[in-house]
């Protein structure tokens, strides 16, 4: 049993030069879903604002496994620092950020 991933922006609509991906994968303290939804919305808004200021970053994919209290997000960003800033603006603790390859990009070749 799983929970539908919270897709944020359409990948096909993403037109920036961002081709780096980062994953955050953290085990949370038991959190009500409402907290997760609020956090997700905050991350989206923070990413939108940072991008508008010239620092490309967006949350591509976000999913939560309640049995493990595990939250996994995939970011497309110009840098790891941008992912860190998104979390700070969203008032979330900065988790471990790991460079990743999004295998579902199809013909686009990630670096």
């Amino acid at each position: 049993m799983g929970i539908s991933p919270l897709l944020t922006q359409s990948r096909s609509g993403h037109t920036s030069d961002v081709d780096k991906h980062f994953i955050i994968d953290w085990t949370l303290p038991p959190s009500p879903l409402v907290d997760l939804h609020a956090a997700h919305r905050a991350i989206d808004e923070a990413g939108r604002r940072l991008t508008a200021e010239g620092e490309q970053v967006r949350c591509v994919y976000s999913t939560y496994a309640p049995s493990q209290h595990r939250w996994i997000c995939l970011f497309a960003a110009a840098s790891e620092d941008a992912v860190r800033k998104v979390h700070e603006i969203a008032q979330l603790p900065v988790p471990r950020i790991v460079a990743a390859i999004d295998l579902s990009l199809g013909d686009r070749q990630p670096t």
Partner: peptide
């Protein structure tokens, strides 16, 4: 100076003592 401490700063002003690991904004 540290934007990550914004919620904590507001919570402290309101006299909220939260010892949990719950995310401060929610």
């Amino acid at each position: 100076e540290d934007q990550a401490l914004l919620t904590q700063t507001i919570a402290t002003t309101l006299g909220i003592h939260d010892r949990t690991a719950r995310w401060p904004a929610p």
